[in-house]
């Protein structure tokens, strides 16, 4: 299983490529999410290229680290990373949401090898990860379980049921990452302190303090800074077997990151780029015309 392969420069290039694949694939499918897949992209690339102990040629191997995309609606972001990491040919991205595809609108573990849990209905992934981590402890296995949540998603009560259980069991073999992109699909009108054009789901509330109150360790990072991401993932993973408590990484991100017209606006939660927008995005991301889904 591979580990620590991509440099910061390589991750930057992968991120530009992956963001273009997300935008162009969704445009080709005529449906799909943009803002979340782009905000979480640097986190996913760091996990899949530098931290997860996985083997794309043997996606079901027993001792692999687990990853649960609790915010399942951002599936196209995960599919893109899996393809670039070698789980399947990136050309298959063209089948996304087309019917008869392994690349469902939300991740399906029974259809696509590399997906550790089916998700889509929000708020359930942390419970799943807690079950995996409890099982690993029962079986005395050393894998780590990672779960990515959205900051809109953690409005769901089931998340907090799981947060309670994880710390009740002192699980240091599970790490939650919250993609704090500060927007959700619709939300509330923006206030003075909000970063973007709608209210931050947790405006006026201290998410870190809430997790600490539940007995978690909390790491705050810039979710687009490769060095900070790397350090946080290393710290969280290093806590396994010693911390006696779970870790959450609160990653401040920008919804729609990397493409000027999608950044920081709730309207690009999902959406279809026009031909002009695609051309502009391609130029911004520095992608040659030969890359991306054929239209």
């Amino acid at each position: 299983m591979t580990h620590h392969t991509a440099s910061a420069e390589e991750l930057e290039a992968l991120a530009r490529h992956a963001r273009w694949l997300v935008l162009s694939t969704v445009a080709d499918a005529g449906a799909g999410h943009i803002g979340g897949p782009l905000s979480q992209m640097d986190l996913l690339l760091a996990l899949y290229f530098n931290h997860l102990r996985i083997d794309p040629s043997d996606p079901h191997r027993d001792d692999r680290d687990r990853f649960v995309l609790s915010k399942g609606h951002t599936a196209i972001g995960l599919y893109t990373v899996l393809a670039l990491r070698g789980y399947f040919d990136p050309a298959e991205l063209a089948t996304f949401d087309h019917g008869d595809s392994r690349l469902q609108g939300h991740p399906d573990m029974r259809m696509l090898p590399g997906i550790d849990a089916s998700t889509g209905s929000l708020g359930q992934g942390l419970s799943v990860a807690v079950g995996m981590a409890l099982g690993a402890r029962l079986q005395q296995r050393d894998f780590h379980t990672w779960v990515l949540l959205g900051d809109g998603e953690i409005e769901e009560g089931m998340v907090w049921e799981a947060a309670y259980a994880a710390s009740r069991y002192g699980l240091d073999n599970v790490t939650a990452i919250v993609d704090r992109n500060g927007l959700q699909q619709y939300g509330w009108p923006a206030g003075a302190s909000d970063r973007f054009d709608r209210r931050d789901p947790w405006a006026g509330k201290d998410v870190g303090a809430i997790f600490r109150g539940f007995g978690w360790d909390v790491i705050d990072i810039d979710g687009h800074d490769h060095a900070e991401i790397d350090r946080a993932l290393e710290t969280a993973c290093g806590a396994r077997g010693s911390a006696g408590r779970p870790t959450v990484i609160l990653a401040e991100t920008v919804k729609g990151k990397g493409v000027s017209f999608t950044e920081g606006t709730y309207r690009w939660h999902n959406g279809i780029a026009t031909a002009d927008q695609l051309a502009a995005a391609r130029a911004e991301l520095g992608q040659p015309e030969t890359v991306g889904v054929a239209r």
Partner: peptide
């Protein structure tokens, strides 16, 4: 709800 999620996670092992 958490019971079901945890049980499912255990079932994957």
């Amino acid at each position: 709800q958490n019971m079901v999620g945890i049980a499912f996670g255990l079932s994957t092992l």
